[in-house]
Amino acid sequence: MAFPKPQATLRSATGIPTGRLAVWWLLASEVVIFGGVLGSYLMHRLGHPEWADAAIHTNTWIGATNTFVLLTSSFTAVLAHQAAERGDGKTAAKFLLFTIGGAFTFLGIKSYEWWYEISHGYTITSNGFWAFYYTAAGLHALHVIAGAIIMGIVAFDAWRNLELQRVELIGIYWHFVDVVWIFLFPLLYIAK
């Protein structure tokens, strides 16, 4: 490190390491972002019985597979954290790479799913249901992409036993992305 670290990353005035405090802070705002989208979806869905006819076209098996992928990637993310706590950066980096693999698998499946739906005429402008479907899942997918990129950076450092505290931080973010999907799955796929 050519220059000293910002003091804030080493301090924990609140009793919580500042980096972790910042991640929680970010997530508190994410709760409002996703809560806003999902809350609006829910109230419109309740006011529009006819959306059920659109919802039957989403593929529950694809949704379930992607839920499995994200749950698994959350599991490897927490194992990466466990390894980082032991000071074992190499193992942490390996588990992070697994997690990134999960992110790509998720995005691959999602791309196939969207390609299929769009080519069958279900687009973001088809009706209210599809508008929410693409908006909510799209916003979520952007978070998956962002997570994968950050995990790559964290894993790169962790491999050389640097900045191991970040493994936990990206993990917390990743679990949040998982939790959002846990709610998207029943909202968009199961409730027909």
Binding site: T14, L27, G35, G36, G39, M43, H44
Partner: peptide, 25 residues
Amino acid sequence: IMKWMLTTSLLLMALMFAGISPDVM
């Protein structure tokens, strides 16, 4: 304090839902 912070976010969402949903539904 973290639990309170997250709870606050959730409460804000509940407030939004309670305020808007009658008009939307």
